[in-house]
Amino acid sequence: MTLAIETTALTRYYDDLCAVDHLSLSVNNEIFALLGPNGSGKTTTVLMLTTLLHPTTGTATVCGHNITTEAGQVRNCISYVPQDMAVDIRLTGRENVHLFAKLYGVKNPKDRTDEVLAVMELTDRADDLIKTYSGGMRRRLELAQALVHEPEVLFLDEPTLGLDVAARKKIWEHIRGLRQKGMTIFVTTHYMDEADQFCDRVGIISNGKIAALGSPEELKARLMKDVITVRIEGQYPDHPVDAVSYVGQSGDEVTFTAENGSEALPHLAKTLESRGVRVHAIDLHEPTLDDVFLQAVGPQEEPHGFSDAKFRIMLRRRK
């Protein structure tokens, strides 16, 4: 059986900026999330897999077709929803979807349009102009456009960016529904909680490299049982404390893991106090992907500072 997506040392440079660095991944029939902060190479990866950008080196196949040499076949079996929310606001919902049905060369464009509009729960607003749609509805309309030709692999770049909680939940419910129908979904996001809740497998990407890969449960289990977050003043001195292990510091929050959190808690508090660390608050919780992320890539602040020139290069290339 051919894998839905397979990348081999996929690499992309923008001038001397390395956006994606020898990325090797395989995605089977599942919801796969590429998880990472802004500028970590998520969108660049999606652009390469959707044949919109050539890799500098390395290669990838989508549905068994090579993304550079068989780009046409790749485009035949995928759909791509970019993060820009590009729908024609002067057209109605139905017209927007019908346009894509015809461009995909679907057999009965009219019926198929009605079908996907119904799936995305847009039937009663189908003949209104997009101008009057909310952000969540526009996103669902884009999903409808992507679904008219029943793709094997669906690429979604930040599908819930800028949406409210209810709209996000709805989008994810739809994505789960598509998965049940057998579609492979490749999604990028920087919302850890969404990836945790809705995805089968996640890859955490940082500076163009995969830092951790596995199902959310696996990744969380790799950390120990419980996570202790301590809010302190200043920098943590990083002396080992019995029964807990240090994960990392992000702002004034220091994260530890422990086999048995509730037993380790008083001990940790006492040790920190005795070392002269001012503790403001201590919180004990089950591990989340945020903790996994912290362990895998370190604090989320931009470590190299902000390079204006590099940022411009990236913006220019992305258009």
Partner: peptide
């Protein structure tokens, strides 16, 4: 079309 992201959507189509 290019700036607003339509072009990328169209380019990813089999047309």
């Amino acid at each position: 079309d290019k700036i607003l992201g339509f072009l990328n959507k169209f380019l990813a189509l089999p047309t």
